[in-house]
Computed example of a mutant assay.
Amino acid sequence: MSSDMQWLDWVKRIQAIAQTGLTYSKDVYDLERFEELRELSIEMLANYTNVSREKIKLHFGSETGYATPKVDIRGVVFKEGKILLVREKADNAWALPGGWADIGHSPSEIAVKEIEEESGYITVPKRILAVMDKKFHDHPPEQYHVYKIFIECQIVAGQPNGGVETSEVAFFDRDRLPELSLERNTVKQIQTMFQFLDDPSKTVILD
């Protein structure tokens, strides 16, 4: 993480300490202190971003249990030397199909489910390509600590069709990528996925 974004790392750590403390502490005074820490993390995040305090509290300051990173699963599908991308309705930019991991589903099940829901293609999982920590890559800053898992899948059926969250489906050449949804994937990450197409024996990437 760059030095000018160090504050975001501190905010996440403060929130994690507060959340874990609120989960396991029994002493009423400790609970008050941890609640104060959580409020401080919300105030800091609201001050340094354009996100409203209410929205931050709803999504960032209301989680319970031991604080752990979130997991984002991305499906990687190649066809005739091109990569499958979907246009996100949220920002009208393109991304590998995927989303947050769901309780009760394995990573490969999530990849297959997201690909079908967002692109219309039915696939089978082949292999894990990369596990990346979002903070090491050129994504816009966000409040969560996120691990990204990229899973290669192979088309077995289906037709291209947008979903609830996507409006278009297409395959793109590595040299003609569209505007990407940087919150979800970066140009460097997409180019890295093509390295696995070029070299099937390439070692899994781990941050």
Rank of each mutant, 00 (worst) to 15 (best):
V76C: 03
Y24P: 00
L85E: 03
H145V: 04
A67P: 05
L40S: 12
K12V: 07
E165L: 14
Q159M: 12
R174G: 09
H139W: 04
E179F: 04
K79M: 15
G65A: 13
S2R: 09
L197S: 02
K113W: 01
E32K: 12
D4T: 05
K202H: 09
N92K: 15
P69R: 07
L8P: 00
A157S: 13
V71C: 01
K57G: 02
G158F: 13
V124P: 00
I110K: 03
L45M: 14
R127M: 12
G99L: 01
Y144Q: 11
T20W: 10
F60Y: 15
E80D: 15
V71S: 02
E88W: 09
S62K: 14
L37Q: 10
V11D: 09
D27P: 02
V156N: 01
K134Y: 06
K89W: 00
R33W: 01
G75V: 00
T49P: 11
R74C: 08
T49E: 12
A130V: 03
G98F: 02
E39F: 01
G158D: 14
V11A: 15
I151Q: 03
Q143P: 10
T203R: 08
H145S: 14
D138R: 07
L45Q: 02
Y24C: 08
S41C: 11
S2A: 07
D173S: 15
F171K: 08
I190A: 08
W7H: 04
T186E: 06
L8I: 12
G61S: 11
K82G: 01
P140M: 14
A18P: 09
V77M: 15
K82N: 12
Y24L: 14
N92F: 14
M44T: 00
E63M: 11
W94A: 12
L84R: 04
Y144P: 00
V112I: 13
K188R: 13
Q154R: 08
V131T: 06
A46G: 04
V28T: 08
S2F: 01
A46Q: 02
I103N: 06
M132I: 07
P178W: 07
G104Y: 03
A130H: 04
F150K: 00
F150V: 02
G162E: 04
E179M: 13
N50D: 14
D175Y: 03
L84F: 10
P125Q: 09
T123R: 04
V146T: 06
F136N: 14
E43G: 02
D173P: 00
R53K: 15
T68G: 02
E114Y: 10
I42E: 12
T166V: 07
M1V: 09
L58I: 07
H105C: 05
L177W: 03
L40R: 06
Q159N: 12
T49D: 12
A170I: 00
L182V: 05
A170K: 13
E116G: 01
T64C: 06
T186G: 03
N185S: 10
V146M: 06
